[in-house]
Each structure stands twice: as C-alpha cells, then as structure tokens.
Computed example of a mutant assay.
Amino acid sequence: MTTFTKQNDLHFAIVVGIDHYPALADLKSARHDAAQFYDWLVDPAFGAVPPANVITVQASDPVMSIDSVLPTQKQIINAMHHVQCTVRQAVTTDPEAFSRTRLYVFVAGHGITPSDGAGGALLTADATPQLGYHVDLRKYARWHRKNGLFREVFVFADCCRVASNVPYGFVPPFTNEPSGMSTDAVVAYATTAGGSSIAQMSGSGARGHFTRALLEALRGAAVNESNDITLASIENYVGLCLGQDQVADFHPKKTASVVLSLRPPAREVRFVFPRPFYGVVQVFRGDDTGTTHPVAGNHLALTLRPGLYRREGRRRTPAADRTGRASSRPGRASGPVPPHGGQPARSAGQQGRREPRSGPRKR
C-alpha cells in the first residue's frame, strides 16, 4: 500500500479533452470534464500533483479544419514520452525515488473498441470514418507494466467503447527498456466494451456521468472503512452513481490495496431537522463504529471526514426531555456526507441517484 501526505514532485499527469472532431460529431462535455479533473489533480488537498508536472494536451476550437485540428496521436505520444524521460532521469539519479512515482492519464472524447480485442481507445481529433487515428489505452498501460518506469499508473477514460472496423489497436511506439521494477497499472473505462459513455447538460454546462461520479469519489465520497480512497472503493461508488445507465469497467479488478488519494480533510457538516428535535443522534460509519450526540433544536453540527454515514435518532418531546422519559417516536435516516461541508446529507432514498437527464449525449 502506498500513501502520500503532501505534494509529490514525482507525480505526473496527462490530461486530454476533445470536443471538436471536424469529420465526426462534435461533443460538448469532454474539455469541461478534462478541466475539472485538472482541478482535482493540482488541489493540494486531493491529487496534490505539482502544476508543472501536469501536461494538458492542447485541444482545438471548432473553427479548426481537419488538416490543422489538435490533438493528434503524435501530440499525446509526445506528452507521454516527456514525462517518461523526466521520471527515468529522476530514478536513475536516485533509485529510491521509484517508490514515489505515479502517473495519471485522463482522457475524454470519442472512443472505440478496436476489433482485435476488448480494450478501449480514444479517437484523436483528426479521426475520420475511414481513418481511425487513436490511442489504445490498455496497450499503453501494458507497456508501463512491462517497462516499470512508474510505481503506479492510473488511466481514466470517459469515452465510448463502440465496436469499430479498425482492425487493431496501435501499439505504443516507445522502445522497450524494462527497468526490472514492478508497476501497478490500472485502466478505468466509463463503460464496458461495446457500450456508450453518457453526458448531459446541467446548470454548469455539459458533464460526463462517469467523470462527475469519479470526481465525487476522489473528493471524498468513496472513503472506505479505513478512511482511505482506494480503487476498489472508487469503483463501488461510481457503480452506485451510474446505476443502469452505463457500467464502468476497471482493469485489473484486484486493486483493493491501492490507495489512490490523500485522506480528505475533515469539514463541518450540519444535519438540519424540519422541526425542533430533542433527544440524541448516533452517527455511524460504514464499519458501524459511531458516536452519540445530544440535540436540542433544529440542527446538529459535526466535524466529519467525507464518506458514507448512517445516522439514527431517538426523539423526545420538550416535556419528556425535562423528565428523562423518551418518546416512542424514534427517528432514522441515512446518507453520505458530501465532499464539501455545509449541506445536509442526502436521504437514503437519494443514495446513488442521478438527476433526471436533459438531452443525454453519447460519446
């Protein structure tokens, strides 16, 4: 298990979001999703990646033609090569630094499944119906496992994986130079092979369902019983959020021991009651450990780390509270504490539910 407590100068990231495809249908949410993931990466309380270590691959505006549109395969490959050279030099200078190395790759845009396997590939901006320029994400993850440049590699892909006539996924053009070190490399797709990734319009613009759930998880909603955010807890939370609309696909599956995020900071959370409440409230974590709090009024303020909690209360009338005799009307509710405090927890009926879609779009 690897954990980190501060910004790490050997954590790197590559972020790609493509909305404009001159020869294909344009998208509305990919660049926004990429920007949101960038914000998580550089936030000292969460990803804690130094901004200088994040490469945001340039994406073109809609006015660009097929001959000048960006990004292409070459741009994305060059970004990967740059971080590879940087970390190779660092580990050559200090071999013990390898244990602190990590690479994040986030991509959003159109996607396909090449016909030679069950992987998933991001179509680059210059792709056409006849020219399926792409980056096959699982093959890049395999290259990193074989060559051992980073201790950990995490790839998140918010794109479709529709079947295509592209005969095979392009392999990484990097030369093989195995370091002898072990790399944990995980690819998390927004959908299963052959499936579609769904986006929708909201008040803040178009958002991909997968990216939205992923960032909620990374910001604290997927904290497990050990107060960590692991790939296993993220996969579980994302699955609850997506429901039956789409099914996320994580590879490999045995990732429970990998701690992906810093432990999120505790925040003040207010439980608001619809009318004055007199009695006691017990707040339980997922492992059923809990605390008891007396309440006399309309709210209860607690300092909690983000995660899933269950709350139970036993109500007393004002008169009964003075005599110590409890009312026979117990109260019970449950829900997750949001990643940012100050809002009431959602009820059990809202757990994992998405807002109604308005004009869903598939990538």
Rank of each mutant, 00 (worst) to 15 (best):
T2E: 09
T3K: 15
L10V: 03
A35G: 10
L41F: 01
V42F: 04
V49Q: 12
I55S: 06
T56S: 15
S68F: 09
T72N: 07
Q73G: 08
D94F: 04
G119Q: 09
T124A: 11
A125Q: 03
A127T: 11
R138S: 02
A141M: 07
A141H: 07
R145V: 13
L149G: 06
R151G: 01
A157S: 13
C159L: 09
V162A: 14
S164F: 07
T175E: 14
E177F: 02
A190V: 01
G195E: 09
R207M: 04
G208D: 11
H209M: 14
A213Q: 08
A213D: 05
N224K: 03
S233G: 10
T255G: 12
P265M: 02
R267S: 12
P274E: 07
R275D: 06
F277W: 02
V281G: 05
V283L: 12
P294N: 12
P294E: 14
L300S: 06
L302K: 00
R314K: 14
T323E: 06
R325Q: 14
R325F: 10
A326F: 11
R329D: 07
R329S: 06
G331Y: 14
S334M: 15
P338H: 13
H340E: 14
G342R: 14
S347F: 11
R354M: 04
E355Q: 10
E355A: 12
R357I: 06
